[in-house]
Design a protein around this nucleic acid. Structure first.
Lengths: 335, 335
DNA sequence: TTCATAATTGGAAACGTTTGCGACTATTTT
DNA sequence: AAAATAGTCGCAAACGTTTCCAATTATGAA
């Protein structure tokens, strides 16, 4: 059996309450007995039982991260930021994959509530029914949503400045002299994607010499990028630049370009969004809009930590983090 | 405050022990009162406090995954498999990133022990000192190591059949008629890498017309693959095929080939190891040895789960999972 | 020296469960 | 009809902490 606070108390000839005080804050206990207790504890190799502590303090010192799939490099990066931030407060991070399945997501949340997690960082609540969402805001545990700034005001949110990213992409293409511009993106109802699209389209239309881009919606993945850009180039071969709503869709566009014998960036310019690691590895290295993924995870648990401490006034907090244009070699100049 | 078993007991007019029995196994309690209790519990929206339960049962229903970095796609896939397997037993998965730093790794482990996790799935113990390793085997919590079959017999292990993967790669290249073959891999002391190397080299040397490959060691990442193959091709331009010890190194070799104006697979054949998602996305799609990453994560927590249940005879268990050649378009025929 | 005060410690309740044991009732057996 | 048995259920201890409160001791001021 593991050794407990009682063993330490017996061995040092004091009461367990003294042991507890000596080992925790150390305040209000005689330095001598404190030293004694500490030495006995380390000699016995005592490790406090954190679940017992959690029972009385009400804090479990764990956070949860509910994403659609950790295999998505975007979420992996967020997870790393979140885990590192949690570690600074001795919290650990529970990983849940929902595949955006509402049932699974609620199952996870309920299980997490039973575990009394101190906070939950969630990918999305949009697939959830209104009742489920209401239950989430009522359940009492702090929740922050990722990249869902448009969602209910009841939740805290952390997101990248998606609209600004769209603007950056448009400006870059404009500056390079492009006039035949297209945009391939995910499903229409996708909140932060439409922010990107809005910033992009608006900027093109507000330009001194306005451009109206072609916008295509489809699956938010490699195949979507590949197929959408194939359709696009078949119908509009005059297109000189494509802005993809994320890097993986851009990779799909690269594949299509290669299949059609187009050179990048000579024949076709490509710009992505996310700046995942493989954007710099692929050929040609992809010009893209950098999202501060690691920092988003970090910021999210910082908010969660704050909310967990102030059990009183828990006003939701929202942060939007800046994005950045990363120029690599997939965009070329047009006269 | 959250509502507890006492509230349910009071509301249904029975003792808390009856509530507990009714809600758990349900055995030994009158079907009528059972139904009553269940309905009251759901009406009050009662959620059992799992930390209180954990305190008495001694099981926390959580597992931990300690990897070097979740951003490595290999580990992300393992994590997904582990999380899914854990979910089947209502366990959840705590994610820890060690960066292979021994200090951080031990900190994490100690923290996990305090949390009374039911098991730990670990990337590696090799950076740990002998005392630390001894402490791990002594601590009483089941541990399974990933891809470290050569490690101490005291731990359970799950690994891919690395040697067979090396054999497969060699056979494939031989079959395509290659005679000038090289192998770029990670640092020399890396256990499972040397398994791959051994299988590869042995097979080439044992062939009817034996081949002695050039073997280069370097950093186990993109830059390593890029630089090693650059050096290789500078010194041995006659090389027609390279086996990289993982896909990311292979991507580095692709970059080098492109830089030198070599076509893949016409001028240079490439074969990787891992079969991460981007292997099929990159151009040309990479021929590689598939590791069952998801299944490895799954198998690991299955072992952990079994070990957690049988607190008695805890004999370490080892499983090695098969690998598979995935033929894509980065390897060509030589006459 | 005496009293007030501060510092240190112990006792015990509490956190929310599970579970062994005994008591009581209903059912069956002889 | 009495005894044995099975089915229900309540009581209370236990899990390992933290923390409030009271008790004791040491310290300083008057």
């Amino acid at each position: 059996m593991a050794i407990t606070i009682k063993d330490v108390a017996r061995e040092s000839g004091v009461n367990i309450s003294t042991v507890s005080r000596a080992l925790n804050n150390g305040y209000g206990v005689n330095p001598q007995t404190r030293d004694l207790v500490v030495s006995v504890a380390s000699r016995l190799n005592y490790r406090p039982n954190r679940v017992a502590r959690g029972l009385v303090t009400g804090r479990s010192h764990s956070m949860a991260l509910v994403v659609s799939d950790i295999r998505n490099p975007f979420f992996a990066e967020v997870a790393r930021g979140a885990a590192d931030a949690a570690r600074t407060d001795n919290c650990d991070l529970i990983l849940c994959n929902s595949d955006l399945d509402p049932v699974r997501q609620m199952e996870y949340v309920k299980s997490l509530l039973e575990k009394r997690v101190d906070g939950i960082l969630m990918n999305s609540v949009s697939p959830l029914s209104a009742e489920d969402q209401a239950e989430l805001v009522e359940c009492g545990v702090p929740i922050v949503l990722l990249n869902r700034s448009a969602a209910s005001k009841a939740f805290s949110t952390v997101s990248a400045d998606n609209e600004a990213g769209g603007v950056l992409a448009a400006q870059h293409l404009l500056k390079l002299g492009h006039r035949k511009i297209a945009h391939v993106t995910g499903p229409r109802q996708h909140g932060n994607l439409s922010d990107r699209t809005r910033g992009f389209v608006q900027t093109l239309e507000d330009a001194p010499r306005p451009v109206t881009p072609i916008v295509l919606h489809g699956p938010f993945n490699f195949e979507g990028g590949r197929d959408l850009s194939a359709r696009l180039l078949a119908e509009h071969p005059e297109t000189t630049a494509i802005f993809a709503a994320n890097d993986v869709m851009a990779f799909g566009a690269v594949r299509t370009a290669l299949d059609r014998g187009l050179r990048i960036p000579e024949d076709l310019s490509l710009i992505g969004f996310d700046n995942i690691e493989f954007s710099s590895i692929i050929h040609p290295p992809l010009t893209t809009i950098h999202q501060p993924k690691y920092e988003m995870g970090q910021a999210a648990v910082e908010i969660l930590l704050r909310l967990a401490r102030d059990k009183t006034r828990r006003t939701p907090e929202s942060r939007v983090l800046g994005v950045e244009l990363i120029e690599r070699q997939s965009c070329g100049r047009r006269s």
